[in-house]
């Protein structure tokens, strides 16, 4: 009788365990949804500061993990401002001064155009499955979607955010909420992802809401007006010469 009870209990655990996906595999699924070989998008960034709201429109290109280029087209003050990322280097071009400044050191921690994103966030390119180890700590209903709660811990100590908590849509393998923490456990950034749409074989969130939890203000909305993935982007886009053009 005692053996039978043990067998039943172990069986139940196996069944329950089988229902949960492998967390590392889940991270790979998320990466395959959110990362692409190349992308071109037009985005609207709504920055809700303590005093006012501003909307910035930009055209963005990316190629692999190492190359990214952004040009702001609106409002007039920011029009013509460009950012170029090549591997671990980042340059910004400011048309009013006609200067190209390399962003490095402490400047990387500053905000991108006054948003809740830092240049460091902008530079973050490592796939989740490579940068973090994961465990599934539970389930939650978030925005009417069934989600896994994923706890991530950085493999390297110098990662920007040592731990993360993700609510991952069970059906579409897309995170709908992300909280990023310092090593001390302090919440630094949070992000809500919504308006998940199908692009080819992927699910892709079209609206992101960032919040720098250390800053006053109501956060930054990041809306994809249009996005094309895995397309051919000419090489000259990712050349430093393009900044002054």
């Amino acid at each position: 009788m005692r053996h039978l009870f043990c067998l039943l209990f172990a069986g139940a655990i196996m069944i329950l365990g089988a229902q949960r996906p492998d967390p590392q595999q889940l991270l790979k699924e998320i990466d395959s949804n959110l990362t692409s070989n190349s992308a071109k998008s037009t985005t609207r960034m709504i920055i809700n500061s303590r005093r006012s709201s501003r909307t910035l429109i930009s055209v963005n290109y990316s190629l692999g993990k190492d190359k990214a280029f952004t040009e702001y087209t609106s409002p007039p003050r920011e029009k013509g401002t460009k950012m170029l990322k090549l591997k671990d280097q980042l340059w910004i071009y400011e048309p009013a001064s006609d200067r190209i400044i390399q962003i490095s050191g402490n400047m990387l921690r500053q905000s991108v155009m006054g948003s809740d994103l830092s240049y460091e966030d902008f530079m973050e390119d490592t796939e989740l499955a490579i940068a973090y180890t994961a465990i599934i700590s539970g389930e939650i209903k978030h925005e009417n979607r069934d989600c896994w709660i994923l706890k991530l811990t950085a493999r390297k100590k110098d990662t920007n955010y040592y731990t993360k908590t993700l609510y991952v849509d069970k059906e579409r393998n897309v995170p709908l909420y992300e909280a990023s923490y310092a090593k001390s456990g302090k919440l630094l950034k949070s992000m809500k992802l919504s308006d998940v749409r199908r692009i080819g074989s992927r699910w892709y969130p079209h609206k992101l809401q960032y919040k720098d939890e250390l800053k006053d203000g109501k956060g930054t909305e990041f809306i994809f007006e249009n996005i094309s993935l895995d397309l051919n982007i000419p090489d000259h886009i990712f050349n430093r010469a393009v900044l002054r053009k």
């Binding site: 005093r51 500053q110 006054g114």
Partner: peptide, 15 residues
Amino acid sequence: SLISSTIDGAMAIRN
């Protein structure tokens, strides 16, 4: 050039 932040927190550069 002076490099600072605007009142909105964006990078500001002027010569």
